[in-house]
Amino acid sequence: MCANPTQLLIPLHVSYIQKLGDSKDDLAYHLSAHLRLNAIYWGYTALAIMNHPDALDREQMIDFVMSCWDQEAGAFGAHPDHDAHLLSTLSAIQILTAQDAVDKVDVDCVVKFILSLHQPSGVFAGDQFGEIDTRFLYCAVSALSLLGRLHELDKDGKREKTVEYILRCRNYDGGFGSCVGAESHAAQVFVCVAALAILDRMDCVDVDTLAFWLCERQLPNGGLNGRPEKLEDVCYSFWVLSSLSILGKVHWIDVDKLVAFILSAQDTENGGIADRPGDMVDVFHTLFGVAGLSILGYPGLVDLDPIYCMPAKLIEAKGLRKSWEALPRREA
């Protein structure tokens, strides 16, 4: 195993993702059924960013997504017969959008499901059991936007309420938490900032303060952490970078060091990217490592839209492109 890879091992990662569905002999595979749909979105998007959008079988993918439809709730669960939830519903919409197969879904029904989860405070619940989190708010806003139904929020002041809730989650450090009062966390910063971007309310963000907080996330080894005095983790490459990219400040971090850190977390034998060097890889960190590299202008990758975490071309084609800046794509 070569100790410190200096290249993104695309063919290895492609085959790693292709083989994910073959791990039915692993108990861990079955224990993560509740994340299956999300995992397919992560895997597919990573492939698309690595310019292998056809590496997974399109029909199979669509069939699986449709098999996760929860008729009773009118939205998607993470796995056939699992309950509908905003987390899996967004993944389903993302996959279907990418495959140009949204017509298979009863969009009205999904929109109704999403709107039903809007709370008087402005936040969204994840499902009928009422857990609230700015993550779900992002899922709702992003999904509505992808479905071309964002205007549904204009009724009854839902849009203003939603923005208000996000702003109530803002802390003095410029960052955002999971709910009112919560500590700023890079992943919650992404969902809040991206939601504000989709809602065209970036004027509410204190760019200077937030971008400072975000670039303070970089540690001497190049990796990014999610909160002060915590360990680095590859997934923050995306949460922090996407936010910085929406703020137009990606250059505030040391690009070369971060690229080297992400590359060092690759499994050079079996493919995939881990949270940090030497750890077990998973598809979640594989996507967010690749996504981070794309924002950093890593050669040979496809542009990623940091707001939707989908290929930029696709979002542009749908007319959904908002303002963001990634680093220019470098030559190999």
């Binding site: 002999d25 692993d26 881990a274 949270d275 750890d279 077990m280 890889v281």
Partner: peptide
């Protein structure tokens, strides 16, 4: 600890598969 990557031989994998079946 964080879940460290361990190198598995084909034998290890087979043994694990058997155990987990």
């Amino acid at each position: 600890h964080g879940v460290k990557r361990i190198r598995q031989t084909a034998q290890d994998r087979e043994a694990k598969r058997q155990r987990e079946q």
